[in-house]
Amino acid sequence: MTTTTTPTAQITVYDVTLRDGNHALRHQASRELVRDYCQLADVSGVDYVEVGHGNGIGASSALVGFSLETDEVLLTTAREALTRKKLAVHCIPGFATVERDVLPALANGVDLVRIGTHVTEADTGAKHLTAVREAGREAVSVLMMSHMATVERLVEECVKVEGFGAQAVVLMDSAGHFSPADVTARISAIVDAVGIDVGFHAHNNLGVGIANALAALDAGATIVDGSSAALGAGAGNAQLECLAAVLVQEYGVDLGELTPFFRMGSLIAERAAGHLPKTTSSSVISALAGVFSGYAPHVQAIAEELNLEPALLWRELGARKVVAGQESIIREIARDLMDLS
């Protein structure tokens, strides 16, 4: 590595294993898994543990998949196991409402809420951000599918969320579409434009998840997302064990002992065996098409049911520029393709 070591680096490590990883588990994370994982994470160098359905609180649904456990069970279980670390949730306005989902999550002891919107639609989260701030908890804005906006538009949205009261803004590469140079350009521009902390959330569809996370840090991001055993949607996230090792070795970040990270990785490798994400031809195709990684199991299922080539579906989904939450369009597209052929 040729990165400059900054020994004073204050980097926030944000663990998404039990939330983004729930995509890989088809939202079937059990209370036992949450408890056991949180007990290990509690003595690790992570700062936040995010828990929930893959699409966040209030997202259990026929459209994207029903959760095995309720939000309440997931959060109270995690809260009980986390005595030192902060508990966080993801929240997508349009799925989750303040009254039904956000306030109960706060009542269950959530410290931080990430309000996730499609990259160009940040204003739909203003009310949710305000509700979290008013409750005295941390409110962070997440711009999902960030590859779908120009750098200029991205910066505009980041400035907007700072105005709404977001305490940090996190860029999600939800489709795993970026290369390190893309990340550098975007994070640099955002860091120049806003006064709040900036974070980055990688997906590994092109095999550059860790490289992208490091590019973000080098460009001035101070929050970095990782997932044990890379458990996450699509080809998974930046693998937390690797990320932690590099942060300690190359960036001089004080994460304490690395052993807990390895235990967390091993626990997930064991409990999620059969669901561990891999970078496959299909994940590369979906990344190039720029489609949300969470679509993968739905595309797979419909392709099998109707005997279609998944690549055809990915390309058509990409051409239509679908966003997260439009999973029901896959069947419509499949039918269109079949009528054509």
Binding site: S61, A62, L63, G94, F95, H118, T120, E121, T124, M148, R320, K321, V322, V323, A324, G325, Q326, S328, I329, E332
Partner: peptide, 23 residues
């Protein structure tokens, strides 16, 4: 009952789509 709303900024803009799931 559950309801979900998604805004899509695609250009050119796309029509409204509504899906009902019943269990």
């Amino acid at each position: 009952a559950k309801s979900i709303l998604v805004l899509n900024p695609v250009e050119p803009p796309t029509i409204m789509r509504t899906t009902v799931h019943m269990k």
